[in-house]
Nucleic acid binder design. Sequence first.
DNA 1: GCAGATTGATGCGTCAGATGCAATAGCTAT
DNA 2: ATAGCTATTGCATCTGACGCATCAATCTGC
Lengths: 276, 276
Amino acid sequence: MADQHPSSLRRALALLDALASDDAISHGGWGVNRLAAHEGRDQSQVSRTLRVFADAGFVERDADTMAYRIGWHVFALAARAADQRLIAAGAPILRRLVEKDLGERIHLSVLQGSEVLTVLTESPPHAVQTVAWAGRLVPAHNTSSGRALLIDLERAEIQRLFDGVAFGDGGPNAPRDVDELYERILTARADGYAVVDEEFEPGLVAAAAPVRDFRGGVIAALNVSAPKFRLWTRLPLAGQAIKSAADVLSAELGWDGVISGDLATRTDAGRSGVPA
Amino acid sequence: MADQHPSSLRRALALLDALASDDAISHGGWGVNRLAAHEGRDQSQVSRTLRVFADAGFVERDADTMAYRIGWHVFALAARAADQRLIAAGAPILRRLVEKDLGERIHLSVLQGSEVLTVLTESPPHAVQTVAWAGRLVPAHNTSSGRALLIDLERAEIQRLFDGVAFGDGGPNAPRDVDELYERILTARADGYAVVDEEFEPGLVAAAAPVRDFRGGVIAALNVSAPKFRLWTRLPLAGQAIKSAADVLSAELGWDGVISGDLATRTDAGRSGVPA
DNA sequence: GCAGATTGATGCGTCAGATGCAATAGCTAT
DNA sequence: ATAGCTATTGCATCTGACGCATCAATCTGC
């Protein structure tokens, strides 16, 4: 029962999302008309809303094409959005992993609802075309990162988190329901790292381990993913490497190695305000 | 200037700014009341507005303290738009450098493996033979751009990156091995900009400085290169000019000047165990 | 234990302001 | 010149943002 008023604010924020879509970015930004069409709104209102955004620096306008794009203010906020320590401490660890240990693409991600947001990526030098994963959302149920981020949750919490989420798509081995997902989470919990084998995409395997902060809660996940033919045989080894790297990162964030029990249990809070 | 509508959207955005203030961040976020007081608004409306922001992921709420802080969604927007903005914000800066400051050819480049890819070029009007550098790859070890792009890396990382790369070709002063390269990177790190003197090509000198995004990592390099007879004497000055221009560009990408996320007060709240 | 203070959420009447239509104006192509 | 595209703006309508008041839930101090 979350859905409340459309709320003009909500509609305005949707414009920002639209400007950050692949399509908009690859076109060098979108004009008022295109945005209005995309959002199903009237040009006039989009024009006025964007002017407010522009005055505030949240969007900027290309002088030539009149196209709007994300502005400096969003970047300034972003610098203060994330736990900057996570980013700062994570970057060198990613590099070390890709260079010394694994030679495959490494990601650092956080949980966003029932999805996983990639925050930092590091690719091997010889990587061909680097798909920009940073800022992308992928499902949590069929990715190793997601599995690692959910590693502390109990069945009921998983159930609640994935309530209304379709498990359909993904690779051939993706979990079909919450039960299967929870079973695999238990496996990950036992191993200390999560592994997926063609769950997200055919031919793709990956391993991930949770990163904890000083309170012991999981705040991020470190993961490696690569084509099955290249990584499959050494995937357990890669899992161990990812796990130790994640532990190092956790230690840098002040984790003392003890999961303080009661933590990581609250969910909710974001949706319906107050549990009735 | 046109009208100055208060505009509920404007007021809402001000809340985000308030949450991004040093004070709010050092307190691990702000509660509804505090925010309302800070903005001079009614608690009720702040509460409602923040719920919309929270539903959209633009802010997150600490489950324990009920404090709001900027959410990962903002980070995602910035991450997806970063490349676009690098080009958009970079172009005028290149132009300004050529026209007002240096009068020599300016490049903006990114790292691609152990090579440097030029993505943007601006030449002075009097440039005779304009080689189309955009899209070209040059080695990273004997160019100022490369040096700037590698400025954060440690020796071991350099070693690994250049494993199997021949250092042979280039100008007379090119580094012969990783040790020499790292030595010069250290110099660049101390100065804040990199300088090469006939390393890439005989008779060619250049200076470059790193460009960082909102995550603090180096994502590009700004550089100037010219014949030695024309630039050599003012190369340190050019280096400084390049460095300040690069810092301006970094600022437009949200860089707040902190490399090692050592924010004044430890962000106490960290992340909540599980965002809803 | 209770009372007072402080927190955030919500019901409701009011009116600011977001909305949609239509008109305007600038631009490019034909 | 027209046609087709663009974005902005005037204006009447009515949504939804607003502030006040209330209420629940923690925290305080005693």
